[in-house]
Lab assay of single mutants.
Amino acid sequence: SRHTFEINGERWTVEGVSEELKEILRAAERASNDEAERLLRLALKLI
């Protein structure tokens, strides 16, 4: 499935992501810059 999210003013669209990964991306959208970066690094390990 496709998911579009915005982090630090940048929009991203990813396809074929699991519900778990979507949850991480949604958390990154709400997080501070440092926390968002940490969550994105974690998410990339899952891809």
Rank of each mutant, 00 (worst) to 15 (best):
S1L: 13
S1D: 15
S1G: 14
S1N: 15
S1A: 12
S1H: 15
S1W: 12
S1F: 10
S1E: 15
R2W: 14
R2Q: 15
R2L: 15
R2E: 12
R2A: 14
R2N: 13
R2T: 15
R2F: 08
R2S: 15
R2K: 15
R2Y: 15
H3N: 10
H3D: 14
H3F: 15
H3E: 15
H3A: 04
H3S: 03
H3V: 14
H3M: 11
H3R: 02
H3K: 03
H3P: 05
T4F: 10
T4L: 04
T4D: 10
T4K: 03
T4N: 05
T4C: 14
T4P: 03
T4V: 14
T4W: 13
F5K: 00
F5G: 00
F5C: 05
F5R: 00
F5L: 04
F5W: 04
F5Y: 05
F5P: 00
E6L: 15
E6F: 15
E6P: 01
E6M: 15
E6T: 13
E6W: 13
E6Q: 09
E6Y: 08
I7C: 08
I7D: 01
I7P: 01
I7V: 08
I7E: 01
I7G: 00
I7H: 02
I7M: 03
I7L: 06
N8D: 10
N8F: 06
N8K: 06
N8C: 09
N8T: 04
N8P: 00
N8I: 05
N8G: 05
G9C: 03
G9Q: 02
G9D: 03
G9H: 02
G9W: 03
G9K: 02
G9T: 02
G9E: 03
G9F: 03
E10P: 01
E10A: 08
E10M: 14
E10Q: 13
E10V: 15
E10I: 15
E10H: 12
E10R: 09
E10D: 07
R11F: 04
R11W: 09
R11K: 13
R11M: 07
R11E: 07
R11H: 11
R11G: 04
R11C: 15
R11N: 09
R11D: 04
W12F: 14
W12K: 01
W12V: 11
W12Y: 15
W12M: 04
W12A: 01
W12P: 00
W12I: 09
T13I: 11
T13A: 05
T13C: 10
T13P: 02
T13Q: 09
T13K: 03
T13H: 12
T13N: 05
T13G: 02
T13W: 14
T13F: 11
V14L: 09
V14I: 13
V14C: 09
V14A: 05
V14D: 02
V14E: 01
V14Q: 01
V14T: 05
E15N: 07
E15L: 12
E15Y: 15
E15C: 12
E15P: 04
E15R: 03
E15W: 14
E15A: 10
E15G: 06
E15D: 10
E15Q: 10
G16V: 10
G16W: 09
G16Q: 06
G16E: 10
G16A: 12
G16N: 14
G16L: 09
G16H: 13
G16C: 12
V17H: 06
V17L: 12
V17M: 07
S18G: 08
S18H: 06
S18P: 04
S18E: 04
S18M: 05
S18K: 03
S18V: 04
S18I: 04
S18T: 14
S18Y: 06
S18L: 05
E19T: 10
E19Q: 12
E19A: 06
E19K: 08
E19N: 11
E19M: 06
E19W: 08
E19G: 07
E19I: 08
E19Y: 08
E19C: 07
E19R: 05
E20P: 06
E20S: 03
E20Y: 13
E20F: 13
E20D: 11
E20Q: 11
E20T: 11
E20N: 10
E20I: 13
L21H: 05
L21A: 12
L21K: 00
L21G: 03
L21F: 05
L21C: 15
L21N: 01
L21D: 01
L21Y: 04
L21T: 13
K22M: 15
K22V: 15
K22F: 14
K22G: 10
K22I: 15
K22L: 15
K22A: 12
K22N: 07
K22R: 14
K22W: 13
E23T: 02
E23V: 09
E23A: 14
E23C: 10
E23P: 01
E23I: 09
I24E: 00
I24H: 02
I24Q: 02
I24V: 09
I24F: 04
I24M: 06
I24N: 00
I24Y: 04
L25D: 00
L25Y: 02
L25I: 06
L25F: 14
L25R: 00
L25K: 00
L25Q: 00
L25S: 00
L25C: 03
L25E: 00
R26V: 10
R26W: 11
R26C: 03
R26D: 09
R26E: 12
R26N: 11
R26G: 07
R26A: 12
A27E: 13
A27C: 07
A27R: 14
A27D: 08
A27L: 13
A27F: 05
A27H: 11
A27Q: 14
A28G: 02
A28S: 04
A28E: 02
A28N: 01
A28L: 12
A28T: 03
A28M: 08
A28F: 06
A28C: 06
A28I: 10
A28P: 01
E29V: 05
E29D: 05
E29M: 07
E29L: 04
E29N: 04
E29F: 05
E29A: 09
E29Q: 08
E29H: 07
E29T: 06
R30L: 14
R30N: 14
R30F: 13
R30M: 15
R30V: 14
R30D: 12
R30I: 08
R30A: 13
R30H: 12
R30Y: 11
A31K: 03
A31S: 11
A31H: 04
A31C: 08
A31Y: 04
A31E: 05
A31V: 07
A31D: 02
A31N: 04
A31M: 06
A31T: 07
S32D: 15
S32V: 06
S32L: 07
S32W: 07
S32R: 04
S32C: 06
S32Y: 05
S32G: 11
S32N: 08
N33C: 11
N33L: 14
N33I: 11
N33K: 15
N33H: 15
N33D: 08
N33G: 15
N33P: 15
N33M: 13
D34W: 10
D34S: 11
D34K: 12
D34A: 09
D34Y: 10
D34H: 12
D34L: 09
D34N: 11
D34V: 13
D34M: 13
D34I: 12
D34R: 08
E35F: 07
E35K: 05
E35V: 08
E35T: 07
E35R: 05
E35I: 08
E35A: 06
E35C: 04
E35Q: 06
E35S: 04
E35G: 03
A36F: 06
A36Q: 12
A36T: 05
A36L: 12
A36S: 09
A36M: 11
A36G: 08
A36I: 07
A36R: 13
E37K: 12
E37M: 10
E37W: 09
E37L: 13
E37P: 02
E37N: 12
E37Q: 09
E37H: 06
E37I: 10
E37F: 08
E37Y: 11
E37R: 09
E37V: 11
R38P: 02
R38N: 09
R38W: 09
R38C: 06
R38I: 13
R38T: 08
R38L: 09
R38Y: 13
R38S: 11
R38K: 12
R38E: 12
R38V: 14
L39E: 00
L39C: 04
L39I: 06
L39A: 02
L39W: 06
L39Q: 02
L39Y: 07
L39T: 01
L40T: 03
L40A: 03
L40H: 03
L40M: 07
L40P: 00
L40D: 00
L40V: 07
L40C: 04
R41L: 14
R41N: 13
R41M: 05
R41D: 07
R41G: 08
R41F: 10
R41V: 13
R41A: 12
R41E: 12
L42M: 06
L42R: 05
L42V: 08
L42E: 08
L42G: 03
L42Q: 07
L42C: 09
L42T: 06
A43P: 00
A43S: 02
A43W: 05
A43E: 01
A43R: 00
A43V: 15
A43Q: 01
A43T: 02
A43K: 00
L44C: 05
L44Q: 05
L44H: 05
L44E: 05
L44F: 07
L44W: 09
L44Y: 06
L44I: 13
L44N: 03
L44A: 05
K45M: 13
K45A: 10
K45I: 12
K45C: 07
K45S: 15
K45H: 11
K45Y: 11
K45L: 08
K45W: 08
L46E: 06
L46I: 14
L46V: 06
L46P: 00
L46A: 07
L46H: 05
L46G: 04
L46F: 09
L46Y: 11
L46R: 03
L46M: 14
L46C: 06
L46K: 04
L46D: 02
I47N: 02
I47Y: 07
I47D: 02
I47A: 08
I47S: 04
I47K: 01
I47V: 07
I47Q: 03
I47M: 13
I47C: 11
